[in-house]
Simulated scan of single mutants.
Amino acid sequence: MVKDEPLTPKAVIFDMDGLMLDTERLAVTMRTKAAKELGWELSEELVLRTIGMDEGSTKKIIVDFCGPEFPYDKTLELMRELIFNQCEKEGISHRPGLLVLLNHLSRLQLPFGIATSTPREIARWKLEKAGILERFSVMACGDEVERGKPAPDIFLLAAKRLGQAPQNCIGFEDSPAGLTALHAAGIPSVYVKDLVEAPEEILRWVWRRCGDLAEAAELFGP
């Protein structure tokens, strides 16, 4: 693929939280709130370091910082309860341009799937709540791989389920961990920033960068 030409992949792989669904801000808020209710202070800066990572990697970062006495599992349980209650009440919003991009890829008859660090049961609930579960032909979830992002496993699994070699896919990500995973998987990446700016050493791996998902639709031609 030439950088100035329209992308011509055989399949497209999407991250979920922060890329398609506007859920990362809620997760950061509710993780810090859950910790506070249990008598601990978590800084937003610390939680933002975990964006895009699976729970194992997230736990290591937080426990390494706070110490082994930090009640990570109880905090996670309470955080998920707070998120569930909020989303049941207010729903889950799309990131800007999502439906424009999905509809465009459907018109082009390009198959697309999901590679998310979120466990499958929770991912399906989020996608259903957002009204887009049925749009995706395959899913690869955080509880289905041994190593989460920034390891490539989850993207390799998604590509396999789409029936394509990694180099024939395009991956969409919003987080440094996800972009690192795409690079390790050999999948060209499209970066759409949400909460965290990727550092320069990761940006050099990015195939394209877009302001939102509607802009990204233009990459695939008319």
Score class of each variant (00 low, 15 high):
Ser117Leu: 05
Ile187Cys: 03
Ile170Leu: 08
Ile170Asn: 04
Ala123Asn: 05
Asp54Glu: 10
Ala158Lys: 08
Gln164Leu: 09
Arg147Asp: 08
Leu213Glu: 06
Asp174Ser: 11
Val12Tyr: 04
Arg204Thr: 13
Glu173Gly: 05
Pro111Cys: 09
Leu156Gln: 05
Glu201His: 15
Cys210Asp: 07
Lys74Ala: 15
Glu200Thr: 13
Ile62Asp: 12
Thr29Ile: 06
Gly131Asn: 01
Ala214Gln: 15
Cys141Glu: 00
Ser43Gly: 01
Gly211His: 05
Leu195Val: 01
Lys60Trp: 09
Leu162Gly: 04
Gly97Asp: 12
Pro111Gln: 05
Phe220Ala: 03
Pro9Lys: 08
Phe220Met: 02
Gly52Ala: 03
Phe155Tyr: 15
Leu101Pro: 02
Gly142Glu: 03
Ile83Glu: 14
Leu162Cys: 08
Leu46Tyr: 07
Val192Thr: 05
Ala177His: 13
Leu108Gln: 04
Trp125Ser: 00
Ala184Asp: 06
Pro152Arg: 09
Gly211Ser: 12
Arg147Gln: 11
Pro68Val: 15
Pro71Phe: 15
Gly221Phe: 03
Met139Phe: 10
Arg124Asn: 03
Val12Asp: 05
Leu157Thr: 08
Val100Trp: 04
Leu78Lys: 14
Pro176Gly: 02
Val196Lys: 11
Gly211Glu: 14
Arg120Tyr: 01
Arg208Met: 11
Ile92Glu: 03
Gly211Asn: 11
Glu134Gln: 13
Gly211Ile: 07
Ala185Gly: 13
Val138Cys: 03
Lys126Tyr: 09
Ala34Leu: 14
Lys36Cys: 06
His183Phe: 09
Met79Pro: 00
Ala198Asn: 10
Lys129Phe: 00
Met53Phe: 01
Gln167Val: 00
Glu197Asp: 12
Ile154Lys: 10
Thr29Gly: 02
Gly178Arg: 11
Arg147Tyr: 09
Asp194Ser: 02
Ile114Pro: 12
Ala140Gln: 04
Ile154Pro: 11
Gly97Val: 12
Glu215Met: 02
Glu200Ile: 10
Trp40Gly: 03
Ile154Glu: 11
Gly148Asn: 12
His183Val: 03
Val28Cys: 08
Gln164Thr: 01
Glu200Ala: 14
Glu45Ser: 13
Arg107Val: 05
Glu90Phe: 12
Gly163Ala: 00
Glu45Thr: 05
Ala123Arg: 00
Tyr72Lys: 07
Leu157Glu: 11
Leu105Ile: 03
Pro188His: 11
Gly211Met: 07
Glu45Tyr: 08
Thr118Pro: 12
Asp73Gly: 06
Phe136Pro: 00
Leu48Ala: 06
Ala184Glu: 13
Met79Lys: 15
Glu77His: 08
Ala11Arg: 02
Arg95Leu: 14
Trp207Tyr: 15
Arg80Ser: 08
Leu78Ala: 11
Arg209Glu: 14
Ser189Met: 13
Pro188Lys: 10
Ile114Tyr: 05
Leu26Arg: 09
Met79Gly: 01
Leu99Lys: 06
Glu218Phe: 04
Asp143Leu: 02
Phe84Lys: 15
Val192Phe: 07
Ala214Cys: 13
Leu203Asp: 11
Leu98Pro: 00
Lys193Thr: 04
Leu157Ile: 08
Ile132Pro: 01
Glu81Met: 13
Thr180Tyr: 01
Glu5Leu: 15
Ala27Asp: 08
Asn85Gln: 13
Ala159Pro: 12
